[in-house]
């Protein structure tokens, strides 16, 4: 019997020929335009490299980045705290409470954030005697706190709407089962409804944070020196377009980082819902 092994043959090389059609050519042409634009931008940064300019404005922009992060984190957290009662009011059976929450949400979602910021920052000046009397003038005089206050109210409206949708997406049977077990409404809410609702709310909440990061640039218009504010200041002093490119990179990095973190978080929090791969 012949026991010599069969000589291994190398498998034939698979060559996938992709035809040249107008789609590929268009795609390549668009990519070439990107590359060209990218080349000019990089060249602008390299040719325009000036250690003094970098040393002067880059630290300021990083400080602005820190202000932006603070604005976003604080307003998102405070907005979340505010969103709970608003969402509950919106879902409540009381006509008055529900109507009030509806008006609040409709106003803040229906008007531009910039107009809201103007309304609160410049409008507060008109109520100065009143605010001084209440000891609140210190807050409303400061552009940073005004921006923070407006962003909080704004994101509370959006988050309340997200939360409301998520709460109503929890199946009715969960309520009924909890009632059948004799659980109190508060316990039902905290231990049964909210954990399920928050998982549904996770994705839209991530989007809301991204919108807040982008929207926070508006604070620069009322003279808050966040990332955008520092960028506009640097541009108005140097007329160097590259500061906008730096800012764009920073914003993109922030948004991309948040997206990645959120994906991780979502995977972690929904691990009981995922099937284990065979």
């Amino acid at each position: 019997m012949n026991t010599t092994p069969i000589a291994a043959r190398t498998p034939p090389k698979i060559v996938i020929k992709r035809p040249w059609n107008w789609q590929r050519i268009t795609g390549l042409a668009v990519l070439a335009v990107y590359a060209l634009l990218g080349y000019f931008m990089v060249r602008m940064v390299i040719v325009g490299y000036d250690p003094e300019f970098f040393g002067k404005y880059l630290p300021r922009m990083f400080h602005g980045l820190w202000i932006t992060v603070k604005l976003v984190v604080v307003s998102i957290v405070l907005g979340a705290l505010l969103a709970f009662p608003i969402a509950l009011a919106r879902n409540s059976r009381s006509r008055v409470l529900s109507g009030f929450a509806f008006c609040y949400i409709y106003f803040f979602r229906g008007t531009p954030l910039l107009a809201q910021v103007y309304l609160i920052y410049y409008g507060a000046g008109q109520f100065r005697p009143f605010l001084v009397e209440w000891g609140l003038w210190g807050i409303f005089r400061d552009a940073y706190f005004c921006a923070l206050f407006t962003f909080t109210l704004n994101t509370a409206a959006y988050q309340a709407e997200i939360l409301r949708g998520a709460i109503s997406s929890v199946a009715n049977g969960q309520w009924e089962a909890a009632k059948a077990l004799g659980l109190r409404p508060t316990v039902t809410y905290v231990k049964i409804i909210l954990p399920q609702a928050l998982i549904t709310a996770l994705r839209p909440l991530g989007n809301e944070i991204i919108f807040m990061i982008k929207g926070s640039a508006i604070a620069s218009i009322i003279t808050v020196f966040d990332l955008m504010g520092e960028t506009r200041l640097a541009f108005s002093r140097s007329f160097d377009f590259q500061v906008y490119l730096w800012a764009a990179c920073m914003y993109l990095a922030m948004v991309e980082a948040l997206r990645r973190v959120w994906d991780r978080l979502e995977k972690r929090l929904t691990r009981h819902l995922q099937r284990i791969a065979d």
Binding site: N21, R24, G27, L31, A217, I218, A248, Y251, L252, E256
Partner: peptide, 22 residues
């Protein structure tokens, strides 16, 4: 066509991530 996909994805990723003001 991957070239077209990339062309579209790069564009949308950039302009969805930038603040509108910027």
């Amino acid at each position: 066509v991957p070239e077209l996909q990339h062309a579209g994805n790069v564009f949308t990723t950039i302009f969805r991530g930038l603040p509108e003001l910027l």
